[in-house]
Write a protein that binds this DNA or RNA. Structure first.
Lengths: 260, 260
DNA sequence: GAGTGGTCTAGACCACGAC
DNA sequence: TCGTGGTCTAGACCACTCC
């Protein structure tokens, strides 16, 4: 990594540093390699450590760097493409969807806001399944799946053993019954958010980690049957939608196409 | 806004501050209202201004605050739902898609990476249309739409006047010819990025602004006919996908469903 | 214990908008 | 001219990982 000088233009130093560092990690470092530590880089570029950190913050937000306390700053692997296609996968919990692991489940009366989102009356019983999704061995998303009991009540109840894993049993029951509904509509929204403490822990990241929040509404028989709110790690995930079969655009090619 | 004391837990101060401020703006301030300035808030909470700014940074990333130089910090309006549904809209540039405005157009030989993304040979001529999308009077996205000439060459060329607005004419020609193709497949990816200088200017934001990068591949007649890379302002946008007709989940309800 | 990134401080000056 | 947020500095101490 060279010691390219900073220009005197009215461009912030940290932004210029980002550009210089980006070129460096693209050309001189391999994925997973540690770059020089912050104090050394700051000295090398003649800036305060806080300024250098501002540049690293940007690159981390872009998913180009990973910082590990006690270890150093590493060049990040390209983001993983994560399919967010329930249409192709069927209902949540169906057989082809192996990536999700249930971490909790419960039933409660709907809050006013949750009731509004589900199109039901406040206080109606709603099952909530909490799950974690992993890809390539890493946790990439958490999800809260909300299903009003009334959307399932015409289906035969599944017998619960009432054993030690009560939550687990309930989750299985909800997901199995959900599977038997026919999906006749899905609607999704994606926005940027930050992980709260509980989510952050499941994602193995500190609180405040940027996440992509995906809100999905499932319709069945002309009514809203479920709402899922999933939070995907923004640093490692690239959400993919749409028909399979098309070749996925490589991240590096996408970056080129953006400014070409 | 009260002066709630900070707890002594091993939770970072800035994160605790974020929580306190979030409660305050939810309960005591209206959309568009200015909150007290940074120096006063820092004094009120007994922290350095940099620490307070770290908390405000989080809330700005979440789209809850807007900071304006020379003015102050305002409570942000809820994010706008922006449909990213070409299926419903038809090809880019079709009549129903009023929100886009062309800002530039050109034709050049494909770089190696762009060729890879389009599934063509390096150096093949590719038309690139640059556009800006506005919603509610605000610019919300920029886009680079890449179309290989070979995908259009079987269609009658549209006569160019060669007048003063050459780029504009070319853009119209490309978009009109594209419209006549039948779309038989779309594939999309969404990831987090930051705006470079040119994009940032079009979005009326400083460089480094977080954006949602949407990469769309359009297939026609069994081949890739176009690739679009759109960057949406993450602070103001909530991307919506899927069938219309379902009621949109209100942001506040979605937030409740996330942790309920 | 040594080295790393994470947090925090108390200042300084600048760029911009309103007056 | 004044008040605002934006940038930058030069330190300090802490939490974590590895040896």
């Amino acid at each position: 990594m060279g010691t390219a000088q900073l220009s005197a233009v009215p461009e912030p130093k940290y932004w210029h540093l980002r550009t210089v560092l980006l070129r460096a990690i693209d050309s001189e470092f391999a994925t997973g390699e540690v770059i020089p530590n912050e104090r050394e880089l700051a000295a090398r570029f003649g800036v305060a450590r806080a300024t250098l950190r501002q540049a690293l913050d940007q690159l981390e937000l872009e998913g180009r760097l990973v910082r590990r306390r006690g270890i150093g700053t590493l060049v990040a692997a390209p983001r993983v493409g994560v399919p967010v296609n329930r249409g192709a996968e069927g209902w949540p919990g169906s057989s082809r969807e192996q990536a999700w692991r249930t971490v909790g489940c419960g039933t409660a009366g709907a809050s006013e806001q949750l009731a509004g989102a589900l199109g039901i009356a406040t206080g109606e019983p709603v099952h909530t399944v909490r799950r974690v999704r992993t890809a390539q061995g890493q946790p990439v998303a958490t999800e809260s799946l909300h299903v009003p009991e009334s959307a399932l009540s015409h289906l035969p109840a599944i017998q619960l053993t009432g054993g030690p894993d009560e939550g687990e049993e309930l989750a299985k029951s909800v997901l199995r019954r959900l599977e038997r509904l026919t999906v006749d509509g899905e609607s999704r929204a994606v926005e940027l958010g930050v992980a709260e403490a509980a989510e952050a822990a499941l994602l193995e990241r500190p609180p405040g980690t940027p996440v992509l929040v995906v809100t999905t509404q499932y319709a069945s028989a002309g009514r809203l049957a479920a709402v899922a709110v999933s939070t995907y790690r923004a640093d490692t995930c690239r959400l993919t939608f749409g028909e399979t079969g098309l070749v996925e655009v490589a991240p590096v090619a996408a970056a080129a196409a953006r400014t070409a």
